[in-house]
Amino acid sequence: MRIEISEGVADVRLNRADKRNALDPAMFAALVRAGERLKTEPGLRAVVLSGEGPDFCAGLDFAAFQAMRSGGRITADVDLPPATGPAKATGQRAAYVWTELPVPVIAAITGHALGGGLQVALGADIRIVAADAKLSVLEIKWGLIPDMTGTQVLPELVGRDVAKELTFTGRIVSGAEAVSLGLATRVADDPRAEALELARSIAGRSPDAVRAAKRLLDLPRDHEAGFAAEQREITALIGSPNQVEAVTASFEKRAPRFTDPT
């Protein structure tokens, strides 16, 4: 992660461009630690979250899917201080820490924001996207569910029916469609430049009023119960026969052969 702070605005970038900013143990840890650092940053007024290179974040690193074939989770190896909020699992913390920041967070999305990458973006307050960006709740491709707070956050943004359609199918939507669905806030030719301009505008407002507004607008539903339910479901799925088959078929470029539940 790269963090540059100027005049109350933190410019935060996922910095693994050669891997499309994919999520590996180091990236998970960096996301959490960056967010935790910014929670107490003096004089902070707003945050812009983006990715180095053409992509925001293409989701889990392929090594994670290889580990899942034997029931493993790469996040199990991430060393972090104990969680204090409702998000307990490492992946959940990597997304939810941006919601927990006391100041507005604006995600600038170009290229791919897939699976876990999209869930990180959902932790932001505002999402500015390129019209041709590609967003997807992609976990179903791998026989999984969104387990980084997505099942709880997504319905609040797009409605329950659209959230189900996106989650059940894993279809990729453009930035323009994402705005029409409520998944993103607005389209821009240069999302990062526009996000920085918006952040500077917010930074010029009363910080007390901005923080109070975020607290009120984020008054939560029972996230703790929902996040815990996510973890029960994902734990049962990882390494299960159908989940292994989903990954294997994808790597072998063939149609999966699933077994129906009994």
Rank of each mutant, 00 (worst) to 15 (best):
L14C: 07
A22D: 08
A203M: 01
T84Q: 14
L14R: 08
A22E: 11
D208P: 03
S174T: 15
V137Q: 02
Y96A: 14
R205F: 14
R37Y: 06
A163C: 03
G170T: 08
F28T: 07
R186Q: 13
T84F: 04
L60Y: 05
T99F: 10
V103I: 09
L31F: 05
A22L: 10
R160G: 11
A193L: 12
F227T: 02
L122N: 09
A89W: 06
L154A: 07
A124G: 05
A10W: 06
A163R: 05
E139T: 04
F62V: 15
T110G: 15
L118E: 11
E252W: 09
F65H: 10
D24Q: 03
P241G: 03
L181Y: 15
V97W: 05
G116C: 04
T262E: 12
G43I: 13
P191T: 05
Q119E: 15
G182E: 09
T149F: 03
R205I: 01
E4P: 03
T235W: 02
A10T: 09
D132C: 13
P102S: 09
A228V: 13
F28M: 12
I172N: 01
Q152G: 12
W98D: 02
S50P: 07
D61M: 02
L217W: 10
L23C: 06
E7W: 07
P256L: 06
L114K: 00
D61N: 07
E245P: 04
L157I: 11
G116R: 00
R186Y: 09
L183D: 01
R2G: 12
E233F: 08
I140W: 00
A22C: 11
I140K: 06
A178T: 10
K39S: 13
R192L: 09
V137P: 00
I172G: 01
A133M: 04
G239K: 03
T110D: 09
C57I: 04
G35K: 01
